[in-house]
Design a protein around this nucleic acid. Sequence first.
DNA 1: TTAGTCATGTAAGTCGTTACATGATTAT
DNA 2: ATAATCATGTAACGACTTACATGACTAA
Lengths: 190, 190
Amino acid sequence: MALRHAVLAALLDGEYSGYQLAKAFDIGVANFWHALPQQLYAELAKLEKEGLLSGRQVLQEGRPNKRLFTVTEAGRAELEAFAETVAKPSFIRDDLMVKVQAADRIGTAAVIAQLDERAEVSRGKVEFLTELLRTLRGDAPEDEYLRHGERIGPYLTCLRGVAFEQETRDWCLRIAAVLRARQENRAEHA
Amino acid sequence: MALRHAVLAALLDGEYSGYQLAKAFDIGVANFWHALPQQLYAELAKLEKEGLLSGRQVLQEGRPNKRLFTVTEAGRAELEAFAETVAKPSFIRDDLMVKVQAADRIGTAAVIAQLDERAEVSRGKVEFLTELLRTLRGDAPEDEYLRHGERIGPYLTCLRGVAFEQETRDWCLRIAAVLRARQENRAEHA
DNA sequence: TTAGTCATGTAAGTCGTTACATGATTAT
DNA sequence: ATAATCATGTAACGACTTACATGACTAA
């Protein structure tokens, strides 16, 4: 039972439909949780049935109707209780790192290519999230916003997201360089 | 099917029993994958049945017998094939960040306490992993080792682990400070 | 006319976590 | 005595992924 709290936390900032929430889980929410749309639709239904969310139907013309969800008092209480429980440590789980671990026992060419690709993806995310941070804090300088802003939660998780992606990028580039240097070395001594 | 490759990659460095592998998954392997002992015992049995690992019984006195596993040629081939496939991006999934996201809509005291605690845990991991790096590279300076060392895979993933933990610690301390400052602010204006 | 956005799900299968189960040896 | 280490699993449940299913509107 963990996705439920991520959904509740994401919905604190307003009304969302399942579809909009799925978008959010690709953008800002991705900084602290990941989930596919199918999971979200199922979780929203469950949370509504339990009374932690309330949904209302919105009729639309020219596009499908949708249901918008808001966190109820019970939902806020559930989050409150969750915050008191001990958090489990977070784990890295990354295909690419499994490949790097095996790197000098298997062919390295494919791994190097994927490191380059990942570095590029991370660069894009850093750029995107940096822009998102600017939007979130508006005109105010950062420390001012952090001291007096009304809603800083999403900003704080976004900060972590930027640092994580930046760090991912640095590592990928460095490891790719190391593996390339070793390839050249081997070519020379052959 | 992802744990299987993490297990194969971990076993590249020698013979392990399920018990020893579980230890490894708490230490070095934790830098790229996480799994509980139960999962590992099940996965080892499956991999052996498929011929990707071979196990041999070791009789012991004064303590329970154990089974040691080695990667077979088929296992190495499986890893090779895995390295060629496209890696999925890795996701953050962290209870603590869910709490921070909700931070200014719920009570912050518990969150601050957990941030401090996590910072301390991460500090410990950084220290431990830094020492592990030193052990792995022996006497050689790092760039020398990375160019000519025989087996650098575990070192490379460990580097990422250190960076990740260091970054986690910095973030926790910073966020805890921000939340504390806001608490004091509110106290002054009350 | 092709791809992308908006919008919501079901079904099957795999993966991961929690709880349970056992039992001898060694260090504090 | 108590806790930790060594050693291997089973069973039940909950979470997550992959594949499938539908259908109208809009922009290039």
